[in-house]
C-alpha cells in the first residue's frame, strides 16, 4: 500500500516537472451519502494533451471528472474536501464563482444532448448568454466551430433545422462544437462515444486528438483501446484511489501495480 502511494506521487511530480498544469488536485476527498467515493486524490493533469481516466465501473472515475467541473453539488448529501486548482485558482474556494469557472471547461456527455433549439442556436447559446449579441459575430462563431468539428459542410444549408433531427454522431459533434463555442481551455469527456457507432466514434476520437494542441482534454472511458488510441496519459482509478498515473504506454504495457496489470490484461492478450 505504501509503495503504491509513493510511486503515484513520484509519477505525479515527474509529470509536473515536464509541463505546467492547468488542473491541479490536492488532497481531494469526496463522500456521497456517507460513502467515501474518492480518497486522497492528488493529481496534476498535463496541459495540451489527452488524459484518460480508466478503471472498473463504480470506481469513481465519473465522480472524479465531475468534481473538476463542480457538477457534483446538485445532489444533496455530498461533501467535498481538498482543493482543485484551475489556473492556480481554487474552484472550491468559498468565493469562487461557479458559472465563470464552468465556462472554462466544456463537457461532452455520454449521450449527445442537443438543446431543444435549432442547430445554429445550439452553438450560439453559450456565446449569447455570455453577452455576445452581434448577429454577425455569432454567425462567425457558429461557422468556425462547425468547421472545427467537421460538421459545417453537412449542415450549412439547414442551420435553422431542429438539432434533434441530426444523426446521433452528428449530434455529438454538434455538442462538442457547442462546448468549444464558449472558448473553454479544458474539455471533459464522460464516456463521450459510448452511444455512438464505430465510425462516429472514430470521428470524435480524431477530433479530440486534433484539438489537443489548443485544449487540455480529460476523458473518462471504459474502453482500453480508446484510451490507447487517443490519450497521452492514463489515470487508473481503483476503489476511489489513483493506483497509477503515467504515460499511456507505461500504464498499459508496463503497469507497476498488480491490480492494474490484471485490469489491462484483457487489453494486451
Amino acid at each position: 500500500m505504501h509503495a503504491v502511494s509513493s510511486s503515484k506521487t513520484e509519477k505525479a511530480q515527474d509529470v509536473n516537472t515536464q509541463v505546467q498544469s492547468h488542473i491541479v488536485i490536492r488532497d481531494l476527498n469526496v463522500h456521497i451519502e456517507g460513502k467515501h467515493i474518492l480518497k486522497n486524490i492528488n493529481l496534476d493533469i498535463p496541459n495540451h494533451s489527452v488524459t484518460s481516466i480508466i478503471g472498473p465501473s463504480g470506481c469513481g472515475k465519473t465522480t472524479l471528472l465531475k468534481t473538476l467541473n463542480r457538477l457534483l453539488e446538485d445532489v444533496s448529501d455530498v461533501s467535498i474536501s481538498g482543493s482543485v486548482l484551475v489556473n492556480g485558482e481554487d474552484i472550491y474556494a468559498p468565493d469562487a464563482e461557479v458559472t465563470h469557472l464552468r465556462k472554462k471547461m466544456g463537457l461532452l456527455s455520454q449521450k449527445p444532448f442537443p438543446l431543444p433549439m435549432s442547430i445554429f442556436d445550439n452553438i450560439a447559446y453559450g456565446p449569447k448568454i455570455h453577452g455576445i449579441k452581434n448577429k454577425k459575430k455569432l454567425q462567425e462563431i457558429v461557422e468556425t466551430q462547425l468547421r472545427n468539428v467537421g460538421l459545417w459542410e453537412e449542415v450549412k444549408d439547414r442551420l435553422d433545422a431542429s438539432a434533434t433531427r441530426l444523426s446521433i454522431g452528428q449530434q455529438q459533434r454538434l455538442c462538442l462544437a457547442r462546448g468549444l463555442a464558449v472558448e473553454p481551455e479544458i474539455i471533459l469527456g464522460d464516456e463521450s462515444t459510448s452511444a455512438l457507432d464505430p465510425i462516429s466514434t472514430q470521428t470524435i476520437e480524431n477530433l479530440l486528438i486534433s484539438l489537443k494542441d489548443a485544449y487540455t482534454i480529460v476523458l473518462v472511458t471504459h474502453i482500453l483501446r480508446q484510451a490507447r488510441r487517443v490519450s497521452d496519459y492514463i489515470i487508473f482509478v481503483y476503489n476511489g484511489e489513483i493506483l497509477e498515473f503515467g504515460k499511456t504506454e507505461d500504464v498499459l504495457l508496463r503497469p507497476k501495480h498488480e491490480i492494474t496489470r490484471q485490469y489491462v490484461k484483457g487489453f494486451i492478450s
Binding site: 465531475k66 464552468r102 465556462k103 463537457l107 431543444p116 455538442c175 457547442r178 464522460d190
Partner: peptide
C-alpha cells in the same frame, strides 16, 4: 429531463436561471 442536459448547459457557464430556461424549453 436527463441530468446530463443540465450538466452540459451548466458546463457552458449558464447560471441556474439560464439552466431553468433551457429545461423549460425542453419540456415545453
Amino acid at each position: 429531463v436527463p441530468a446530463d442536459l443540465r450538466h452540459v448547459t451548466q458546463s457552458l457557464g449558464a447560471t441556474r436561471w439560464e439552466v431553468a430556461k433551457v429545461l423549460l424549453l425542453f419540456i415545453k
